[in-house]
Design a protein around this nucleic acid. Structure first.
Length: 428
RNA sequence: GGGGGGUUUCCCGAGCGGUCAAAGGGGUCAGACUGUAAAUCUGAUGGCACAGCCUUCACAGGUUCGAAUCCUGUACCCCCCA
């Protein structure tokens, strides 16, 4: 067994741990089972869930058996940790769809067919739905001193706020998650729960419960929340969360997100989010210090993560789109290719007749495409050299666009400024 | 209840009865530079059929050849006194 704890430590992935020395011994002695819970409040995971999910993968690679738990039951209640407000409850149906979405993504990261230590996916709804309220109170609730529950940060911070408070439902959340751990220990011999640092309270609650119910000694390990050097959360852009699902965040946008990571954050990201070896990461650190402009680290980071989440094809598509977005003239593409590359770009449809005769005036085209709010603005943009047709700078307010300006069968690519694109589709 | 001050273009804010589409700053947008960065520099920034025309300065009226600027009323905001 390789020393997984040492590996996690140098990567900066250990935030808190219960009895680390003992845990290390146990993990190094033989293959163990561990789990991490994921919240099904959306049908896709986002960048923030990537660290814990990759942690499971790291454990699996070190020979341990990971269980990914989706909180079908706990998702119905809402985890108060890290939330400042009471959560809106999700319907069972939405929850079911979300769980299915998460499952798909977990299959990308974890190996469910490994011969020695296959990953498993469980849904706590499966064992939670059978409980009656009375039974649960008697068998589980009995082990929770309210004074301890009140002392948890997640609860305390909510009670201290004048404008929030906490419902009994969310207050009870901890019992459910604690029970998960006890349950997985009994059924699967699960020994360790991992999670982000905001899960510490829930994890220790589980450890306490298992000890009280069966005298078992379980372990917990948390990783830091991924934040940028300025303290803000990783994985957010102006346009919103960076998701793993290609339907929500295209491979191109995903790739670009990592390409644009700040120099100061790149080292951490490489350590915490990739499986690049220590030597290479340190070489990249040195290269970055010497010539930050080359951005080798960012490229490596984007490549690793895009390949992991979107596969080899997704990576290639993202890289090709990148070339186009920042590079050469667009000529002789097919509608399908352009559609793929410009998946995130707004488009609008115009009748094909607009290209006939004198054609379509560039000023009007920019307005139609939404790249200018008024014709005046369009003229200004053109006059200042900020208008591009198929990535070729086009000057002259009088320019008329005709069928010969199409980049593919029916699409014309307009651009204003450095990277604001819009497509015009000419339909019959 | 009494007295005073305010309401300007995306935001802050200057505006003499004509030369005001309205200073200045911020933001935004383009350009140069650059690392698809930061900083910096340059230009632009109500609309249009663009040497012209149209619509803006809380709202409605009025005075005037002419009003963002003066008067009256209305609404909202702020301050002081009770």
């Amino acid at each position: 067994m390789s020393d997984i704890i040492a590996e996690l430590q140098w990567r900066g992935l250990v935030h808190q741990s219960t009895d680390e020395a003992r845990l290390r011994e146990l993990l190094n002695a033989e293959s163990r089972t561990l789990y991490c819970g994921f919240d099904p409040s959306a049908d896709s995971l986002h960048v923030g869930s990537l660290i814990p999910l990759l942690m499971l993968r790291r454990f699996q690679r070190a020979g341990h058996r990971p269980i990914a738990l989706v909180g079908g039951a706990t998702g119905m209640i809402g985890d108060p940790s890290g939330k400042s407000e009471e959560r809106n409850l999700l319907s069972e149906e939405v929850l079911r769809e979300n769980v299915a979405g998460l499952e798909q993504q977990m299959r990308l990261i974890l190996d469910f067919d490994d011969a020695a230590a296959p990953a498993a996916l469980v849904n706590n709804y499966d064992w939670m739905r059978g409980w009656s309220y009375l039974e649960f109170l008697r068998d589980v609730g009995k082990h929770f001193p309210v004074s301890v529950m009140m002392a948890k940060d997640s609860v305390k911070s909510r009670l201290e706020r004048d404008d929030a408070g906490i419902s009994f439902t969310e207050f009870s959340y901890m019992l459910l998650q604690a029970y998960d751990f006890a349950h997985l220990h009994r059924e699967d011999g699960c020994l360790l729960q991992i999670g982000a640092s905001d899960q510490w309270g829930n994890i220790t609650a589980g450890i306490d419960l298992a000890r009280r119910m069966s005298g078992a000694q379980l372990y917990g390990l948390t990783c830091p929340l991924l934040t940028k050097s300025d303290g803000s959360k990783m994985g957010k852009t102006e346009s919103g969360t960076v998701w793993l699902s290609p339907r929500r965040t295209s491979p191109y946008a995903f790739y670009q997100y990592w390409i644009n990571v700040d120099d100061a954050d790149t080292g951490n990201c490489l350590r915490m989010l990739t499986e690049v070896e220590r030597d290479e990461i340190e070489a990249l650190d040195a290269a970055r210090a010497a010539d930050p402009g080359k951005r080798e680290s960012q490229k490596r980071l984007a490549e690793e993560l895009t390949r992991l989440v979107h596969g080899e094809d997704g990576l290639r598509a993202a890289q090709r789109a990148t070339e186009i977005f920042f590079g050469a003239e667009i000529r002789e593409f097919s509608d399908a290719q352009l559609g793929e590359i410009f998946a995130d770009v707004p488009s609008c449809e115009l009748p094909r007749e607009r290209l006939a005769g004198d054609g379509l005036n560039l000023v009007d085209a920019l307005v139609e495409a939404g790249l200018a709010k008024s014709k005046g603005e369009a003229r200004r943009t053109i006059g200042q050299g900020g208008a591009y047709v198929n990535n070729r700078r086009t000057e002259g307010v009088e320019t008329q666009l005709t069928a010969s300006d199409l980049a593919s069968e029916s699409v014309m690519v307009l651009r204003s400024g450095k990277k604001k694109y819009a497509l015009l589709r000419f339909v019959d």
